[in-house]
């Protein structure tokens, strides 16, 4: 294996540790497969949302309930968090010390938490309007899709905390590196899902 051959972006194992590199190969591949199952899950929730979009049962519809401004800010928060996670990955790849990693991971965590806070606030507003998940098929589908994404972001936040602790305890050993890499894939994946949610769910508020 030549020294500058990059098999897994973000892992600076190179020729130094072929065994871990081989392990990373299947570890990361397995995680891609997991993301595939998650993508199927979201795809079906999107399809379900599409089918139930017209099932408002006389209750509140998209135009009345979706606040595009707050969805836009949430989008910015999440996209920025993806960027800061990218910086964390670069820090792990190029930095010999985990210090920068311990800067960018908490930043990502804060942005993620900010996103979750705003989303919960949106939900609370909707609930107080009487737009509850049990009001209509449309609202059930909306809450199922958007809060499944929210739960994923929450899981991602917990995972970031776990990784921060592990970096503090173990430094960047091979398993930490592999797991940060997986976490990165997960985090960017959620970003992509959110872009789809913004386009398919929230932008509907403009036309319906």
């Amino acid at each position: 294996m030549s020294a500058n051959e990059v098999l897994h972006a973000g892992l600076n194992l190179g020729a130094t540790d072929p065994k871990t590199h081989a392990e990373a190969g299947s570890a990361i591949f397995g995680f891609w497969v997991f993301l595939m199952t998650d993508a199927v899950l979201f795809a079906l929730l999107f399809a379900n949302y599409g089918v139930l979009l017209s099932g408002t049962a006389g209750g509140p519809g998209p135009a009345a309930e979706f606040k595009l401004s707050s969805a836009f800010i949430e989008t910015l928060l999440l996209l920025t968090s993806s960027f800061t996670f990218g910086l964390a990955s670069l820090a792990m790849k190029h930095g010999s010390q985990p210090r920068l990693l311990q800067v960018w991971l908490p930043t990502t965590l804060l942005l993620g938490a900010g996103f979750l806070g705003m989303e919960l606030h949106d939900f609370a507003t909707m609930l107080s309007d009487g737009a509850t998940p049990s009001r209509s098929g449309f609202l059930s589908a909306f809450f199922a899709l958007v809060s499944t994404h929210g739960l994923h972001v929450f899981a991602g936040c917990v995972w970031i905390i776990v990784m921060m602790v592990q970096i503090a305890v173990f430094g960047t050993d091979a398993r930490v590196k592999i797991n940060v890499l997986r976490l990165g894939l997960f985090w960017h994946f959620l970003d992509i899902i959110w872009v789809a949610i913004f386009s398919v769910v929230y932008l509907q508020g403009l036309i319906r």
Partner: peptide, 23 residues
Amino acid sequence: LLALDRYLGMHFFTNGMGGNMMN
């Protein structure tokens, strides 16, 4: 989703209230 219908009174597959059992 069926569990959400049963536990939280949602309307994915209910007969009415915008649910769609064919889904």
